[in-house]
Structure formats: C-alpha cells, structure tokens
C-alpha cells in the first residue's frame, strides 16, 4: 500500500499520458473507442488524444498480445548478434516482427536502446529485461509468460 502514495498521481490527474498508459495496461491497446472516451472525459479533441497516443512507441493503437517482446536493435546489441535472437524468436513464435501470435499470447517488436548494453543482446518482455541472451535460453524464458 505504501507504494500507492507515489505511484498514484496527485489528485488533479487529468494527465492524458498517464491515463493512456493505464488504459493500455488494462485493455492491452488503445482502441478508437477508448481514445474517444478519454477525449470526452478530458474534454479534449480526439485528434489531440490520438496525437499523443501515436507519438510514443510504447503506446499502441493496434491490438497487442498479452506479452510484448521488444528486441533491442541498437548498435551494442546489433553487434552482439541481435539479428540471431530476432530470427530465433520469429521462428519459435511463428511470426514476423511487428506481428502478434494467433493465440494472442505474444507480440514481437523491435525497439531502440533499452539501456542494457552491458548485457547485450537484450530484450524486454513487458517490463522485464532479459540480457546476455542466447538462442538456447529463449524457449525457457518464454515459458514464464503464459
């Protein structure tokens, strides 16, 4: 409970970005309907709400899987064979980057530097970092995400 004091925002939370992040967490993505509802609640134009939702790469206006895998493609990871990791993930999941598995379990995305360059190649699954990744470890890591 103690965490709540800092994690919840100050009373006047009319903050669009916080609400978008919360909504995405709850609904998995930001549908036109939820964006329209937010616009109404905040008395903003839908265009402006859509503008914020499409600016940030962690927000999505398209449906995502329950777990989002973000593979770092920036230089330190790239030169530690991120491409091999991407290929292996695509093969294991049977999808290409930018796609979601048919069962809705995983989405696979590429992302820019996640600040885990000392553990390259690294990926984020939801909020968790998995570094020093090897192809053999991938199935076991994925198992933890149902």
């Amino acid at each position: 409970m103690a965490e709540n004091t800092t994690i919840t925002q100050s009373k006047e939370t009319k903050d669009l970005l916080i609400l978008l992040a919360q909504t995405q967490k709850k609904c998995g993505f930001l549908s036109e309907e939820t964006l329209a509802n937010l616009a109404r609640t905040l008395d903003m134009s839908l265009s402006d709400v859509y503008g914020v939702a499409t600016f940030y790469s962690f927000l999505s206006t398209k449906p995502l899987g329950r777990h989002v895998i973000r593979v770092c493609k920036s230089l330190p990871c790239h030169y530690k064979d991120a491409a091999v990791i991407i290929e292996s993930l695509e093969k294991t999941l049977g999808i290409k980057t930018g796609e979601t598995t048919p069962d809705g379990r995983f989405s696979l995305e590429l992302t820019n530097c996640i600040g885990a360059c000392d553990k390259a190649p690294a990926i984020l699954i939801n909020d968790d970092v998995h570094g020093d990744l090897t192809v053999d470890r991938i199935p076991q890591i994925l198992q933890a995400y149902k």
Binding site: L17, I18, F55, Y56, S57, L59, C113
Partner: peptide, 24 residues
C-alpha cells in the same frame, strides 16, 4: 512524484520532457 515516459528518446531533451510531464 515519479512520472513514466512512454518510449521516446527525444523526451530526454528538457523541453520535450516537460511537454511529456504535462501529458502532451
């Protein structure tokens, strides 16, 4: 108060960062 970014490198630039805290 901790405010979370949402995936934008440019928000490390101070004026963009402030816009982001303002929810824009």
């Amino acid at each position: 108060e901790i405010r979370m970014g949402a995936g934008a490198y440019v928000c490390g630039e101070e004026s963009a960062l402030m816009e982001s805290i303002e929810g824009k």
